[in-house]
Design a protein around this nucleic acid. Structure first.
Length: 511
RNA sequence: GCGGGAGUAGCUCAGCUGGCCAGAGCAUCAGCCUUCCAAGCUGAGGGUCGCGGGUUCGAAUCCCGUCUCCCGCUCCA
C-alpha cells in the first residue's frame, strides 16, 4: 500500500458518506472528524463486534459506561497530570523538537561516559588489584563529574517542579547544549505540552478545573469495586467499556489515525497477582484472533513489543496493522500491575482490595488491559477493504470489501425496473428483511450502476427483483466480492442472507 | 510551534502573460427509455473563484495580510 492509496481512502471516505472533516463549512477543525451516514453504521458495527466478542461471549466480563468527567484527583492519582505534560523545546535552525528534560539528561550522560572511561583506564592500570568501589569513591575526576550531574539534576528539578520553564531554558543555554542535528544553540523557549484537555465544572468561572478523560480505563478502575461487589464478580473477571477520550496531541494528523477526540474500546481484566503474565499472553493471542477473524491477511498484522514501558506497565505489546503509511499501532495490550488500583487506594484511603476466599486473604488484583482505538480499527477496515479491481477491457470496479457483518448495509434491494409492480414487491421484501438487517432500497438508474454504487459502500449482497419474481416468488442474489449471481426463492432468502452477513456468523469464528 | 505544498460547482480539475465568458467531465434533480454489472436521450439546478485589503477603468488572474487543510519534526489508542 502507499500514500496514493491512503489518499484514495480519505477521499472515498468522504465521497461516500463515511467520514467528514469536523465543522467543514467553517473551514474545518484540525484533527477532528465526523462520521457520516455510512461511517456511523460501520463504526457502530465494529463496536458491536467488539462488545459482543468481549462481553457477550465471556461470562466473566461485564460492561460499564463511565462518564467523561471525573474527579480531578483521579488524574493526579493515575499519573496523567504529571506524567503526560512534557516540557518541549525547538531548535530554530534544524526545526527539530526535543523534550527539554531529555536534552539535559543526554548532556549529563556525557559525564557518565567520562566516568566510565576513567574506570576502564584505571582497570588497565591496576590490573588484578583494582577495587571499583574504592576507585569511584576516591577519584577526583569522577567526584567532579558526579557533582556536575547532581547540580544539573537539582536545577532541572527546580525548574520542572516550580513550573518556571524559563529556568530550564537557562540551564540549557548555560550548559551550552547544542542541537544534535544543526549543531546550533538557537533555541525557542521551553513550552509545556499538556496531554489532557480541561474545562471548568461550574457555570461561573473560577478555580474548578476539570479534565476530559484521556483514557476510559480510569472510569473502570474507580468503579471496579462497585462492579465487583454488586455483580458478585470473582477473580479473574473483566470490565469492558467503549467511549470517547480526548488527548491534546502535539501533532495529531494522518486522517482519523490520530484525533484529538477519539473512541476507545477497553477491557480491564482483574487477576490474582502472579497470574498476570499468563493472562497477558492469553489476551495477546485472543485479541489477535479477533482481528484475524475479520478475514484480513495475517501478513498485515504483527505484534510489537514495547521496550520502553509506560509508567503503569510491566509488559506491553502493540498489535500493529500495515496501514498505507506503514505498520502502526491499532491496539495495545498492557500488563498494568496493581499500579492504578494502588494509586487510587493511596489517594482516597479507601480499601480497593479483593477478598480471595480460597486463599483467605485480601489483595489488590493485578490488571491486564486490552485497549483498541475504534477509529483506528475503522481505518484498518477502510484501508484494507478499498480496492480497485481490473475487470479487463480497461474496465475497473471500485469495491469496498468489508467484512459483511460490519458493512453499513448488509443488503440492497433493487427492483430491476421502476414499474410493473416490481418496486411494490421489492418494498415488501425490504420490510421483512429490515427487522434483521440494515437494507438499502434503490430504484433509480440501470441495475449495473446500482450494483457499483453498492460495491462502493461495501454492501455484500444485492437482491434484484425482476419480472419473474412476481410469478415464481424468487429473486436474484448478487455477491459483492465475486459478482456471481444466484436465484433464491423468497422463502429461503432470509436464511441465505443471514448465513453470509450476520454478526452471529462472524462471531462463530471466535468460539 | 517551525518549514514545505494547496485552496475555483458535491467530486476531479481547466482558466492564472489582468478585459469573450466563471467553464469542462463526472455527480445531482426532473422527464423519456425498461435495461442483470457504471458512463443512452432531453432539460434543469448549483460557485460572492478560502477570507480581507490594495493596485487598476477593470482582479479567479498582480501585490500584501489572514484563515484553513495536507505533508515533515514529537507522542500515542
Amino acid at each position: 500500500m502507499s500514500e496514493e492509496h491512503f489518499k484514495s481512502v480519505i477521499s472515498h471516505a468522504k465521497e461516500y458518506g463515511f467520514v467528514f472533516l469536523s465543522s467543514e463549512i467553517y473551514d474545518g477543525l484540525a484533527a477532528v472528524y465526523d462520521y457520516g451516514q455510512n461511517g456511523v453504521e460501520l463504526k457502530k458495527n465494529i463496536r458491536e463486534y467488539w462488545w459482543k466478542s468481549m462481553v457477550q461471549l465471556h461470562e466473566n466480563i461485564v460492561g460499564v459506561d463511565a462518564s467523561i468527567f471525573m474527579a480531578p484527583d483521579v488524574w493526579k492519582a493515575s499519573g496523567h497530570v504529571d506524567g503526560f505534560s512534557d516540557p518541549m523545546i525547538d531548535n530554530k535552525d534544524s526545526k527539530k523538537r526535543y523534550r527539554a528534560d531529555v536534552l539535559i539528561e543526554d548532556f549529563q550522560e556525557k559525564y557518565r561516559v567520562k566516568n566510565q572511561k576513567e574506570i576502564t583506564k584505571a582497570k588497565k592500570r591496576f590490573g588484578e588489584d583494582f577495587d571499583l568501589e574504592q576507585f569511584v569513591a576516591t577519584n577526583p575526576n569522577i567526584a567532579r563529574n558526579n557533582a556536575k550531574i547532581e547540580a544539573i539534576d537539582e536545577r532541572l528539578k527546580e525548574g520542572l517542579e516550580s513550573g518556571n520553564l524559563h529556568l530550564v531554558k537557562e540551564l540549557i543555554e548555560e550548559l551550552g547544549i547544542a542541537c544534535p542535528v544543526s549543531g546550533s544553540k538557537n533555541w525557542t523557549d521551553v513550552r509545556q505540552f499538556n496531554l489532557m484537555y480541561s474545562t471548568q465544572m461550574s457555570a461561573t468561572d473560577g478555580d474548578n478545573k476539570i479534565y476530559l478523560r484521556p483514557e476510559t480505563a480510569q472510569g473502570i478502575f474507580v468503579n471496579y469495586l462497585n462492579v465487583q461487589k454488586t455483580g458478585r464478580m470473582k477473580l479473574p473477571f473483566g470490565i469492558a467499556q467503549t467511549g470517547k477520550a480526548f488527548r491534546n496531541e502535539i501533532v495529531a494528523r494522518q486522517f482519523i489515525m490520530r484525533m484529538k477526540e477519539f473512541e476507545q474500546m477497553e477491557m480491564q481484566f482483574f487477576v490474582t497477582p502472579g497470574q498476570e503474565m499468563e493472562w497477558y499472553n492469553h489476551w495477546k493471542s485472543h485479541r489477535m484472533k479477533w482481528h484475524l477473524n475479520l478475514g484480513i491477511d495475517k501478513r498485515k498484522y504483527r505484534f510489537h513489543d514495547h521496550i520502553k514501558l509506560a509508567h503503569y506497565a510491566n509488559a506491553a505489546v502493540d498489535i500493529e496493522f500495515d496501514f498505507p503509511f506503514g505498520f502502526k499501532e491499532v491496539e495495545g495490550i498492557h500488563s498494568r500491575t496493581d499500579f492504578d488500583l494502588k494509586q487510587h487506594e493511596l489517594a482516597t484511603g479507601k480499601k480497593l482490595q479483593y477478598f480471595d476466599h480460597e486463599k483467605n486473604e485480601s489483595y489488590i488484583p493485578y490488571v491486564v488491559e486490552t485497549s483498541i482505538g475504534l477509529d483506528r480499527m475503522f481505518l484498518v477496515l477502510m484501508s484494507n477493504a478499498l480496492q480497485t479491481e481490473d475487470l479487463g477491457d480497461g474496465q475497473t470496479r471500485t469495491v469496498l470489501k468489508l467484512p459483511p457483518a460490519l458493512s453499513p448495509f448488509q443488503c440492497a434491494i433493487l427492483p430491476l425496473v421502476k414499474k410493473d409492480g416490481l418496486p411494490e414487491l421489492a418494498k415488501k421484501i425490504m420490510r421483512d428483511l429490515s427487522l434483521d438487517f440494515n437494507c438499502y432500497y434503490e430504484e433509480k438508474d440501470s441495475i449495473g450502476k446500482r450494483y457499483r454504487r453498492q460495491d462502493a459502500i461495501g454492501t455484500p449482497i444485492c437482491i434484484t427483483v425482476d419480472h419473474d419474481s412476481v410469478n415464481d416468488q424468487a429473486v436474484t442474489i448478487r455477491y459483492r466480492d465475486t459478482m456471481n449471481q444466484m436465484r433464491v426463492s423468497l422463502s429461503e432468502l432470509h436464511e441465505t442472507i443471514e448465513k453470509e452477513v450476520s454478526m452471529k456468523a462472524l462471531l462463530k469464528g471466535l468460539i
